[in-house]
């Protein structure tokens, strides 16, 4: 009998990141995880494009989403720029994110496309199927939907707790806890 514990679906690091074995992380030297980040299966992160992809704490990348740094012509040369994601960012299944920066407590729904160099501030909710055009700046506390994305409302007072992802973090991993 082998003494090795059974291989779980996730790799759990010392800092609490849970990275699925079936996730595709290309160019890991450029991918920075802040800790307690969940990366589900079939997620793809492009770190091989010579620029950093930094992810904060308690981020949740759902199944099948894709993160890639944006690129553009800059001073006569084509350059890829870093993709920065702060804390408590939820990325829904099948979404494609090419933003320049995403603030903290942002909820991105399923099958959302975020165009290159979009800037999303804090406490933003992006509904399912939204197409955020390139270079769009979304102010804090807005709710965004549509193709192309428009601001359709504001996050109500007291609605900020819904963005916390600490509980969601506990529900996945090799020994998940049931949701409260």
């Amino acid at each position: 009998m082998s003494r090795r514990p059974p291989r779980g679906e996730y790799i759990e690091t010392d800092t609490g990141n849970k990275v699925a074995r079936k996730a595709t992380l290309v160019g890991t030297q450029n991918i920075m995880l802040g800790g307690k980040t969940v990366i589900q299966p079939e997620v793809m992160i492009r770190g091989d494009l010579n620029t950093a992809v930094s992810i904060g704490r308690y981020c949740f990348l759902s199944r099948g989403c894709c993160l890639r740094p944006p690129g553009r012509m800059y001073k006569g040369a084509f350059t890829y720029m870093p993709l920065r994601m702060v804390d408590h960012v939820f990325v829904g299944p099948g979404s494609i994110v090419q933003a320049a920066s995403i603030g903290s407590h942002v909820h991105i729904g399923a099958r959302v496309a975020i165009g290159e160099f979009a800037i999303i501030k804090d406490y933003v909710r992006i509904l399912d199927g939204t197409v955020v055009p390139p270079n769009m700046v979304i102010p804090s506390f807005s709710i965004v939907a549509g193709q192309p994305a428009r601001i359709i409302g504001e996050v109500p007072e007291g609605g900020h707790d819904a963005f916390e992802l600490r509980d969601l973090y506990k529900t996945v991993g090799n020994n998940p806890q049931p949701a409260v």
Partner: peptide, 11 residues
């Protein structure tokens, strides 16, 4: 064309 030049070095 410039983008491809860059990608050639990266991939």
């Amino acid at each position: 064309a410039r983008q491809i030049d860059v990608l050639r070095r990266l991939i």
